[in-house]
Nucleic acid binder design. Sequence first.
DNA 1: CGAGCGATTGATTTCTTTCAATATCGGTGG
DNA 2: CCACCGATATTGAAAGAAATCAATCGCTCG
Lengths: 249, 249
Amino acid sequence: MVDSQIDIGRALRSIHVTCQDCSLARQCLPFNLDENELGRFDGIVKRARPLHKHEYLIRAGDPVQHVYALRSGALKSYLLSPDGIEQVTGFHFPGELIGLDALGGQRHPSYAVALETSMICAIPINKLEELAGQIPGLRKQLLRTLGREIHEEHEHHGRVRESAEQRLVAFLLNLSERYSRRGLSAATFALPMSRRDIASYLGLTTETVSRLFTRFRDLNLIAGNGHEVQLQDIRALRQQGKTEGVASL
Amino acid sequence: MVDSQIDIGRALRSIHVTCQDCSLARQCLPFNLDENELGRFDGIVKRARPLHKHEYLIRAGDPVQHVYALRSGALKSYLLSPDGIEQVTGFHFPGELIGLDALGGQRHPSYAVALETSMICAIPINKLEELAGQIPGLRKQLLRTLGREIHEEHEHHGRVRESAEQRLVAFLLNLSERYSRRGLSAATFALPMSRRDIASYLGLTTETVSRLFTRFRDLNLIAGNGHEVQLQDIRALRQQGKTEGVASL
DNA sequence: CGAGCGATTGATTTCTTTCAATATCGGTGG
DNA sequence: CCACCGATATTGAAAGAAATCAATCGCTCG
């Protein structure tokens, strides 16, 4: 469990990063807070030991006590359908919140599992609610975050009618944008998730995703193999995503 | 505009329903508020003249000033993709909130238009935020609502991989559940939206939706033509949605 | 009552899935 | 450090589901 005691050993320094010091603070909940407010917010945040690849942050059915902010690493969230099929609902990168779908109920509806070693901040919901009552800026940012999440979900949903190709393009461009927002390269980045995860997220099969990667590589739209991609020509890629065009076949 | 002055004329009585009197209050934001709090909440709610079929409540690009609660009628929300295609993102029924995706930004990202004559409450966001700071119960309910919205969006999204048949079944059962939650029949209800809207929402074509309705009718799973349906055998329908089974072909 | 849009139905095409086989990667133990 | 194993990814061929193209029907509303 993330909330368990701190491993005094190795990670003391990284664990004791405060929100004041966190470079992601402005992409996270403590956005626009003054020094004093930031300190109060920091006071309710629990920092746990790192979560290793394949370890679970959340399991469906867990009682809802925290929302989580990701400091480093990557996670995926998924729903388990009645027939036991994993439906990936999202990927999470540093600065993003995890577990927001749980605000509606008593138990977490979905799973969240680390795709690589990740550092996580746990924010107790009851304390967050209380603090949100006292700090207008926090309240505002919380609502903004939730609203944005809903909007992004709608956008993603709007892609259902698009072709497999368009969906994968949109996915890559979305990752690119999120990486670059964090100051990383928009063109070269890692894909910490499996083809299967991508396929599940996009509503496709792994075979189709694999074929699309191959096609994009053949068209020199992307390079790199496996879990590292370079977007060779973002403009052309975006075009590909628009016009459905596979002129070169 | 909904926010414009009240039409003194005919609708005085229906307009002056307060939250205290509104039968939907417990499905809406003022859930769990005491008398005093309810009064304060009611004080910030603006009730406008009825919105007629095809009239817009929200247009993409509008500055974000309110969220809306639906008192009667029905609306759809949609995004307009860059190439001018309408992507229906949801349908709204009494007791539900509209415009939550706008909390993340300055301008509304999506459109909301009446599918039939509808009565709407407009809630100014800045006042709502302020009041949410003062009333813990309101704060909680607001977060619950947003969390539930996100969760429902995930569930819907999880259906992308399912067959057209399964998606339509899930859609009908979802409507059924929402109608019955409001005390209406779970088996017989109106479909205020067009086949095209349903298709867009589910990521299908109108032809496919139409064929599915015909098939369900042939299988005696549903009855009724056009914009009124009766679910003849909810259990069988649910089964149809699960097993992919079209044993009778 | 007519016009026009929405819904239905049919025939054909196309994209994605499914089924199947092989290749490759990553990790583990010798 | 290398060889081997299982899991993951890629590739191919065939089948199937939904889209597209096209025509007709029917209802609603001027």
